[in-house]
Amino acid sequence: MVSFLRVFKFAFQDIARNLGLFSMTIFILVLMLLSVNTLWSMDVVTKEAVQVVKQQVNISFYLVADASDQAIKDLTSYIQSFPQVVSVKVVSRNDVLASFETRHQFNTDVLQALSELGSNPFGPTIVVNTKEPSDYKTIMDAVNVPQYQSLVEDENFQGHEDALDRIQSITNRVNQIGLGLSILFAVIAFLIIFNAVRVAINSQRIEISIKRLVGASNWFIRAPYLVESLIYSVLSLAITMLIMYFAVHWLDQYLTIIFPTGFSLTNYYRSHMLYVFGIQGVVVLVLTVFSSTLAMRRQLKV
């Protein structure tokens, strides 16, 4: 126990003697962790965005104006029988007309043309939502059969496929850049920690030789450097968590505007804190311990 406490004492002494190098190492580790967290947050936000867009995707089947209630009911039941379908909604002729009028309320030419017709030119519409955007093709193909050709006048797939593709493409690009940055910072952090320990050992050559001379065990000589690695990891993670706390709070005011679902990054980090920072903590610890051990193997021939 006494030796254990002294290992910590020697580790803190070493940090105090090389404060500049210690700060630089922490700074680089924090940069690395921040880039990882940016990547992580982007992934969470884009997943949420894709989910929101997917919910807005639907296919509309515009039926002929004189479609009978029975025919509409048959078609609705037929569409509902597909397992990919989440919901089917029938919009009546009047509702379609009302919706059209609302949409074009400031366009007098359109409203004038509509009134000149003298009657409601719209047929009912069946709006279908599926589990995945890719399922719409199946439904469209299923409806495009001779049995329903006389009933369905037109169809419109508001697929937002372009939007989904664009989101996916941006996500992939951001992920690639983020991954590249994370690897770059990890390499820099490795080199800095490696050199920090090497410099520390070099500056303590006399002390280390005296420790050996008076009977310090190999463990006792090496352990302070491993404790330093632990301190690097804990401190850099704590600083990153603090920065992330304020960053996601600031971001949330914009995200709540973008996402009607009430999505919040703060809530995400709160509920996944152990997982997100646990993984990062383990990675940083492995990185720091590995670089310290490598530096010790090269510098300490105990």
């Binding site: 006494v2 002294r6 420790k211 008076v214 009977g215 310090a216 065990s217 006792f220």
Partner: peptide, 9 residues
């Protein structure tokens, strides 16, 4: 110091 590294209280 010689006693410290040997874990003496």
């Amino acid at each position: 110091f010689a006693l410290e590294v040997a874990g003496v209280s």
